[in-house]
């Protein structure tokens, strides 16, 4: 019996292909793409102000609302944060990625890669929580700052408008630290992968031709690692744009995009507006992906 089924299928490779591809494709099309399209459609509906009900007819007024002054401020604030986090991550990630790719012994390398990938996969929420403990007013960071007699500096930072707050655990400055920490592995891995591909012969050639290590780094290694930096920044940028856990846990009353979307769809009951506002990050992400593709970043993914 099985033999006959096997022969039957063997003679029909197209049918086998569709039997295999069918279930995963059906799932992704119906559940995922279906939901995304539904969301896109919703973003063209609008909320009737008096009744609070969703009016299901095509309109652009929700999009107009999504870029009103209050929301524009939210978008600007979130993008600034995402850019700052991306820059900080690139600076912090580079030395470690460089060390892993070019200097670590094979044994150490395996362990370092594991230590970078474990936080990439796990305990996102728990790692945010860890910073709640660290940044608390009475917590470990304040204790260290006190020990080093730097409290006046910290107080001065916290008084700065725009980045300060009542304590590090309730300020944009604290959020910046946590975002940078949370997304760091997403920057390290692509840079390391890119650096891994720089041929040793190229580096040798550079030094043979009389470049000192600094010059080699600037003119050979850095340009070749750049696509990796771009690939990493796709993640750090988009993940910061869409996140609402960090702003809800460490932010103050000044909203970020993710947080605004979360509250519009939840307490606000305004799914069209929430939908329109998520389209922002989606469009930014797609543009970003297109630019990154032109820069060759996908080779480093």
């Amino acid at each position: 019996m099985l033999q006959r089924v096997s022969t039957f299928l063997y003679l029909r490779p197209r049918m086998v292909l569709w039997l295999m591809l069918g279930p995963p494709l059906a799932y992704m099309f119906v559940v995922y793409l279906g939901s995304l399209i539904n969301l896109l459609v919703y973003s063209f509906f609008y909320l009737e102000e008096f009744t609070g009900l969703v009016v299901r007819e095509f309109s652009l007024r929700t999009y107009l609302e999504s870029v009103n002054i209050a929301n524009r401020e939210i978008i600007l604030r979130t993008s600034t944060m995402a850019a700052a986090v991306t820059l900080a991550d690139a600076l912090i990630a580079f030395p470690l990625a460089y060390y892993i790719a070019k200097f670590a012994s094979p044994r150490l390398k395996t362990w370092l890669i594991i230590s970078v990938t474990i936080p990439l996969w796990s305990s996102y929420l728990v790692r945010v929580y860890a910073w709640k403990l660290i940044l608390a007013k009475e917590g470990i960071l304040s204790w260290f700052v006190d020990l080093l007699h730097l409290s006046p500096l910290l107080d001065w930072l916290l008084r700065l408008p725009g980045i300060g707050g009542s304590s590090l655990s309730l300020s944009p400055l604290g959020m910046f630290v946590v975002f940078t920490y949370i997304w760091l592995p997403y920057m390290i891995i692509p840079i390391q992968t890119a650096l891994e591909r720089v041929p040793a012969s190229l580096i040798e050639a550079s030094s043979d031709l009389g470049a000192h290590p600094g010059q080699t780094f600037r003119t050979v290694i850095l340009p070749l690692a750049f696509p990796g930096v771009v690939a990493g920044s796709i993640f750090t940028f988009s993940l910061t744009l869409g996140d609402f856990i960090v702003p809800l846990s460490l932010g103050n009353s000044k909203f970020f995009i993710g947080q605004a979307v979360y509250s519009y769809q939840g307490t606000g009951g305004n799914i069209p507006l929430a939908a329109a506002m998520t389209m922002g990050p989606v469009v930014i992400m797609i543009l970003y992906l297109l630019i990154a593709k032109r820069l060759g970043a996908f080779d480093a993914l």
Binding site: L25, M28, L33, S35, D243, Q265
Partner: peptide, 21 residues
């Protein structure tokens, strides 16, 4: 591309899309 999309786009997009569906 389709399979990678749910992890390439921010989680909130997947979340709210499913929620509205």
């Amino acid at each position: 591309f389709l399979l990678v999309l749910p992890i390439a786009l921010p989680g909130i997009v997947t979340g709210i899309a499913l929620r509205s569906a």
